[in-house]
Design a protein around this nucleic acid. Structure first.
Length: 197
DNA sequence: CGGCCGATCCACT
DNA sequence: GTGGATCGGCCGA
């Protein structure tokens, strides 16, 4: 399991790149499922117009973003999709990373059940709404701690390092998706993904 | 308290 | 390529 120190670092861009190749895992309803993270987006605290915490906004929802690095921030998008984010940096600094894509690993049968499909195609885990759907992550899980099981009953969500190293040359970088409203910040190269084969 | 809209996905054409 | 689903968060009155 990734240690607290991984998440407490101050460079959210660096952490977003480092998360590529790590394994996001859940145990929901007693069922283990996991996938290798292949796409992420960084959201840089109160100065990033694309961030929910832009301008230092605090609300019942965004309060989670101000917690200690290693906290799960999950919110509802378009009234339909739960999107899973990892909070990073020190307590009080609302940096976060959206997990946009996984390659399914363990629990494929369970993932099929959750999505109502018989098989998973190559794009089954690409898209942030699909990540949460496959892994059984619901926005009610927002605030769980990815490191300290005392704050994460039955350790429902965590991230593992299985020793996979992604070469920098295999990482594609570009602007974030769906943040046109963020003006100049919509152009920031804060999206990272492993080059597909 | 009302209204607008979003870090999306899928079915359908 | 397009539009509908679907609802909580946030803002302005």
């Amino acid at each position: 399991m990734l240690p607290r120190s991984f998440y407490l670092r101050s460079d959210v861009i660096r952490i977003a790149r480092d998360l590529l190749g790590k394994y996001l895992a859940t145990r929901v309803d007693g069922r283990l499922s996991s996938g290798m993270i292949c796409e992420t987006e960084a959201y840089a605290g109160i100065t990033d117009r694309a961030s929910h915490a832009f301008g230092g906004l605090r609300s019942a929802r965004t309060e989670i973003m101000y917690r200690l690095g290693g906290t799960a921030y999950v919110y509802l998008c378009y009234g339909v999709h739960s999107l899973f984010n990892v909070v990073t940096n020190l307590e009080g600094i609302p940096d976060a990373i959206l997990i946009r894509g996984i390659i399914p690993a363990e629990g494929v049968a369970e993932m099929c059940k959750r999505t109502g499909k018989t098989t998973l195609d190559a794009n089954a885990g690409i898209g942030p709404g699909k990540v949460a759907k496959l892994l059984g992550i619901h926005y009610s899980l927002s605030g769980l701690d990815l490191v300290d099981s005392v704050k994460n009953p039955s350790q429902a969500i965590w991230i593992e390092d299985r020793g996979i190293v992604i070469k920098p040359s295999a990482i594609l970088t570009g602007p974030r998706v769906g943040v046109e409203y963020a003006g100049p910040d919509s152009l920031l190269p804060y999206r990272f993904r492993i080059q597909p084969e």
